[in-house]
Amino acid sequence: MTVYDVKKEDIARVSVKNKRNAVGHPCAQLADPNITVEDVLNSEIMAWPVQRLDISPPSDGAAALIYCSEDIVRQYTDDPVWVDGVGWNIDSTMWTNRDLYFPRYVSEAAKMAYKMAGIHNPRKEIDFAEPYDPFDYKELHHMEGLLLCDKGQAPILTREGVTQRDGDLPICPSGGLLGVGNPIAATMGQKACELYWQLSGKAGKRQIPGDPMVGVGQAWGDIMQMATVICMRRG
């Protein structure tokens, strides 16, 4: 907030967007079609500047995906969704010795995944993203880490509506952790399932308009130091 002069209202918009997006997700714990920015800003203070509605709850849940090799995929479907790239990266344990305003470990993991997926210009080639959003500010942080916008620009894109489901770059169309829930280690599974549903046109009420072709999912872990990234593409 201090480095980029980010307003609390713009961070709260993420929570509002995701909790509204979650309406229609069959597993959502915290979907709310009527939530407003004021609701978030007026919620209980937990650890300033973090308030209750900035936070996703720890949730029970499990996610599963079935991968198969290209050789046999046609036995199961004519419309596979391809896993085009994966990346992972970890930063130093000694987090008090590094800058926290930009998550380098996310950008390194993203570069690895994009290289594998042949993505040269992530902002143009990626149609939507499911970054890890256990707190609303983390979605913004991770959008920047995923190189989907310049440093400090994610709150502005959010304010302008670019990251809404019908915007140019939908972010967390599933409702994310803020809307669906935070199943800790199953989170990447939840994100990857949404990529699959969106890319195969099976997302129902949550479907992004315009047949998205490429999606990216991301998870975060450890002491603000670890990221995993997955890129998927419609077949």
């Binding site: 990346g87 992972w88 990266n89 970890i90 930063d91 130093s92 344990t93 000694m94 380098r104 470990y105 390194e108 993991a109 690895m112 872990g221 450890d222 002491i223 130091q225 670890m226």
Partner: peptide, 19 residues
């Protein structure tokens, strides 16, 4: 818990793919 986080420095894995 999450021993993963205490690993990278001493094995040379800072800002590298590590699991």
């Amino acid at each position: 818990s999450i021993f993963d986080e205490f690993v990278p420095d001493q094995i040379g894995a800072v800002l590298r793919p590590c699991c």
